[in-house]
Simulated assay, not measured.
Amino acid sequence: MSTENRDSAGRVVIVLDAGTDEGYRTARALLADGCRVVATDRHAAALVRILHDQPADRLLLLAADDSQHNLVQAKAKARFGRVDSVIRPAGLPLALSA
């Protein structure tokens, strides 16, 4: 029996600044809801704690800042096939470029 939220399951979400405490909580909550997560932060070491006890096939960790948005999207699409949304730790979605 799955506990995943049917609306979230399988969605691909980029979490910016995921190395912060709020970003960590956001990424982990999305993973718990069944999303595939691309977690970014300027410092790769800050992202490692997100990986603990998580399936590696649903998580991509990238060292990147906001200026590398196109690169992050390209890597996310290469890994997961699409990007459904981009979230800052505050939880506000960002518009995706076409």
Score class of each variant (00 low, 15 high):
1 M>E: 03
2 S>K: 10
2 S>Q: 13
3 T>P: 00
3 T>N: 12
3 T>H: 13
4 E>D: 03
4 E>S: 08
5 N>W: 05
5 N>T: 04
6 R>H: 06
7 D>T: 04
7 D>K: 12
8 S>R: 11
9 A>H: 04
9 A>G: 01
10 G>N: 02
10 G>D: 02
10 G>M: 05
11 R>A: 10
11 R>T: 06
12 V>F: 09
13 V>L: 02
14 I>Q: 00
14 I>R: 01
16 L>Y: 04
16 L>N: 12
16 L>P: 00
16 L>Q: 10
20 T>D: 05
20 T>F: 05
22 E>R: 15
23 G>Q: 08
23 G>D: 01
23 G>H: 09
24 Y>A: 00
24 Y>H: 14
25 R>N: 04
25 R>A: 14
25 R>C: 00
26 T>K: 04
27 A>V: 05
27 A>Y: 01
27 A>I: 04
29 A>K: 14
30 L>F: 09
31 L>W: 06
32 A>D: 15
33 D>V: 04
33 D>I: 01
34 G>D: 07
34 G>T: 09
35 C>D: 13
35 C>T: 07
35 C>E: 12
37 V>Y: 03
37 V>K: 02
39 A>Q: 11
39 A>C: 07
40 T>Y: 04
41 D>S: 15
41 D>T: 08
45 A>Y: 04
45 A>T: 08
45 A>S: 13
45 A>I: 11
45 A>G: 08
46 A>V: 00
46 A>S: 11
47 L>F: 06
47 L>Y: 01
47 L>N: 02
48 V>E: 12
48 V>H: 04
48 V>Y: 00
48 V>M: 06
48 V>L: 11
48 V>W: 01
49 R>L: 04
49 R>A: 08
49 R>F: 02
49 R>E: 05
50 I>T: 06
51 L>K: 13
51 L>A: 15
52 H>W: 02
53 D>W: 02
55 P>K: 14
57 D>Y: 05
57 D>W: 07
58 R>L: 05
58 R>W: 08
59 L>D: 03
59 L>Y: 02
59 L>V: 10
60 L>H: 06
60 L>G: 03
60 L>Q: 13
61 L>Q: 03
63 A>D: 07
63 A>S: 15
64 A>R: 04
64 A>I: 02
66 D>S: 10
66 D>C: 03
67 S>A: 14
68 Q>K: 12
68 Q>I: 06
68 Q>P: 01
69 H>I: 14
70 N>V: 14
71 L>Q: 07
71 L>F: 12
72 V>Q: 03
72 V>G: 02
73 Q>F: 05
73 Q>S: 06
74 A>F: 02
76 A>V: 06
76 A>S: 12
76 A>N: 01
77 K>W: 00
77 K>M: 13
79 R>N: 04
79 R>Q: 13
79 R>A: 12
80 F>H: 03
83 V>T: 09
83 V>P: 00
85 S>Q: 10
85 S>D: 12
85 S>K: 05
86 V>M: 13
86 V>P: 00
87 I>E: 03
87 I>S: 01
87 I>K: 05
87 I>D: 00
87 I>W: 06
88 R>A: 14
88 R>N: 09
88 R>D: 07
88 R>Q: 13
88 R>T: 09
89 P>T: 11
90 A>K: 01
90 A>I: 02
91 G>T: 05
92 L>T: 13
92 L>S: 12
94 L>K: 10
95 A>K: 15
95 A>D: 11
96 L>E: 06
96 L>F: 02
